[in-house]
């Protein structure tokens, strides 16, 4: 008995961990499991549910708009991952070469990340339409404009953030390795690909993970920029929202007025979680293998 309370860390540890643990359980663990439970139910209020088994999952997978938004989101995630990381790394590389005003550039490039997604979406929709209206069109009228518009928006917002992580990585590349490469007569290009990049692999791991999951989870910017427009109006009057991504599709399903739709939305959300978690873990283990020990 005495032993437990001997160490003040042990004695007070739970007291200080308590609030955070409680908040984590209330705000994350409990809703998570309740969400999984609800995906097997038909419900209007979460306090009044009817168990329906796998019905919701069947409905979700039969939904053409869900599959459309899945492929659209996958394409978006891959393209945005490439652009954000290549450009973010390039910016970080340029700003660690000792150019004048590096700190100012870093701050300025990072700033877009501080603006909320909804605000960004509306601002960019005005910018895009300011240009597109000269050509008699709008970002809401062409799927490809909506797609590339969202890519531009996300690059603008995320490059600065990834850049900061890459800068930290670049600064921790050991000086002696770089010097040794220089003495051995390596060109700048060789140094970059053979010394620098292998040494920043941990940063690349974390940045690709972040941009991949961000790409899949994207919601605010999608809602504010196009909200799924343009729609394809099918002959039977149903619609395919051509620029609707997974998260927005789930939201729209959940708040559809069909009494069964909330359960279907919930089932989609569980599928979505499995997908994002699976992809994220697969990508982590893949890039981890390429990290070198310093």
């Amino acid at each position: 008995m005495k032993g437990i309370f001997k160490n003040p860390m042990r004695r007070w540890g739970w007291f200080f961990l308590g609030p955070v643990t409680a908040a984590f359980c209330i705000g994350f663990v409990w809703p998570f499991f309740q969400g999984i439970y609800l995906s097997f139910c038909k419900f209007k209020l979460i306090s009044k549910t009817t168990w329906v088994g796998f019905d919701n999952y069947v409905q979700a997978l039969k939904d053409a708009s869900f599959m459309h938004s899945f492929w659209y989101t996958a394409l978006f995630a891959i393209v945005s991952l490439l652009f954000i990381n290549v450009l973010g790394f390039a910016a970080a590389y340029a700003l660690t070469q000792g150019i004048k005003g590096s700190n100012l550039y870093r701050t300025v490039f990072f700033m877009p990340n501080l603006i909320g997604g909804i605000v960004l979406g509306y601002i960019w929709s005005m910018i895009f339409d300011g240009i597109l209206s000269r050509y008699g069109t709008s970002i809401l009228l062409e799927t490809k404009y909506g797609f590339w518009g969202l890519i531009i928006l996300m690059c603008w917002q995320q490059i600065g953030y990834m850049m900061i992580i890459y800068i930290a990585g670049l600064q921790s590349v050991p000086e002696d390795m770089l010097e040794a490469a220089k003495i051995d007569g390596a060109t700048k290009r060789q140094t970059l690909f053979r010394v620098t990049i292998p040494n920043v692999m941990p940063s690349i791991t974390i940045c690709t993970f972040l941009s991949l999951t961000n790409g899949f989870k994207l919601f605010d910017q999608n809602l504010a920029l196009t909200a799924g427009q343009p729609f394809i109006i099918q002959p039977d009057g149903s619609t395919v929202k051509t620029t609707e991504m997974l998260a927005l599709n789930i939201y729209n399903t959940f708040y559809g007025q069909n009494s069964a739709s909330k359960g279907v939305g919930q089932a989609k959300a569980v599928l979505f979680f499995i997908l994002v978690a699976g992809l994220g873990l697969a990508q982590l283990s893949y890039t981890r293998k390429r990290e070198v020990q310093q």
Binding site: T137, S138, L140, L141, Q229, P230, F231, N252, G256
Partner: peptide, 20 residues
């Protein structure tokens, strides 16, 4: 209007195409 939000959203999208 049934499923009013979805119904109107589709109509807006169609009217946008038409206005252009």
């Amino acid at each position: 209007q049934p499923n009013v939000d979805d119904y109107r959203a589709a109509l807006v999208s169609a009217l946008n195409q038409y206005c252009a």
